[in-house]
């Protein structure tokens, strides 16, 4: 790589790309589970579309991670031959789909985050990452709009849909804290000017989410000092490979064929 990062930065960058790639791979996988089972045909199409965007982003990100890592691992090696504890996606995205309200609220929370993050990563000094982020920014703008429209419809629709949406938001809230918390990986990359400052994302995310939840007449789970994101049994550790039990099952299903015939080409 021309003017590439030094060795230590390289490792951190690979770790960062795994985080990005894994989030999109796992959420894309979860959304693909809806295909054929959605509430209306239009939504089968929309959710599949979003899943396709995310899987496309995941594929590009993992490929790039593999290239930079230089251990001869292609995107499929990374997706299909790592263990759960080697995945660094958020616990938010590995949660089972639940009902449609749960799926939409999770998608909305993640899309708002993805949109703010992609917007910034377009300015990465790593050209390939900036390119993937530019595409991701456009795509996540659509994901955000689509999920926001459903937040409003369900929040303001019927009593049942309102209740289901409130429950979904309450359930999901504890997964959002770690999504907005960055650690030494991002800090190091920012210090090396590989990526811009990501700290403005959290307040912006809270602003977007508060506005939509208010319009959807959904109560924001907590108005505690920290926004409730750190309290209420908030989860943490995903970025270091700590997960809920759901991820292992998801991977068992996803990886079965590739792992059963490791020498086969598909």
């Amino acid at each position: 790589m021309k003017n590439g990062p030094d060795h230590r930065t390289k490792n951190v960058l690979v770790e960062f790309l795994f985080r990005l790639g894994d989030d999109r791979l796992i959420l894309g996988h979860r959304l693909s589970e809806w295909c054929g089972h959605a509430p209306i045909l239009e939504e089968d199409i929309a959710l599949a579309n979003i899943a396709l965007d995310l899987l496309g982003q995941a594929s590009a990100l993992l490929r790039l991670a593999g290239e930079i890592e230089g251990k001869n691992r292609a995107e499929d090696d990374l997706a299909y031959f790592r263990e759960a504890t080697q995945f660094t996606n958020l616990q938010l995205v590995e949660q089972p789909n639940g009902d449609f309200a749960f799926t939409i609220a999770r998608l909305f929370f993640f899309s708002a985050f993805n949109n703010l993050l992609s917007e910034r990563l377009q300015k990465s000094s790593i050209e390939a990452l900036a390119g993937i982020a530019a595409k991701g920014f456009k795509e996540s703008s659509y994901h955000l709009r689509h999920s926001k429209e459903w937040m409003l419809r369900l929040g303001n629709g019927t009593e049942e849909s309102h209740q289901r949406m409130q429950i979904a938001v309450n359930e999901l809230w504890r997964f959002t804290g770690e999504m907005l918390a960055f650690d030494e990986v991002e800090e190091k990359l920012q210090q090396q000017n590989v990526i811009p400052d990501l700290n403005p994302i959290a307040p912006k995310w809270n602003e977007i989410v508060a506005a939509v939840l208010t319009e959807a007449t959904i109560i924001i789970p907590s108005h505690q000092k920290d926004g409730g994101q750190a309290g209420n049994h908030a989860v943490s550790g995903s970025r270091n490979g700590f997960h809920s039990e759901h991820l292992g099952h998801l991977l068992a299903e996803m990886q079965i064929l590739a792992r059963s015939y490791p020498d086969a080409k598909w």
Binding site: H37, P39, I40, D99, F100, G157, E160
Partner: peptide, 9 residues
Amino acid sequence: DGAWVREAA
């Protein structure tokens, strides 16, 4: 499973 979603819309 989708009935409540369609009703809400």
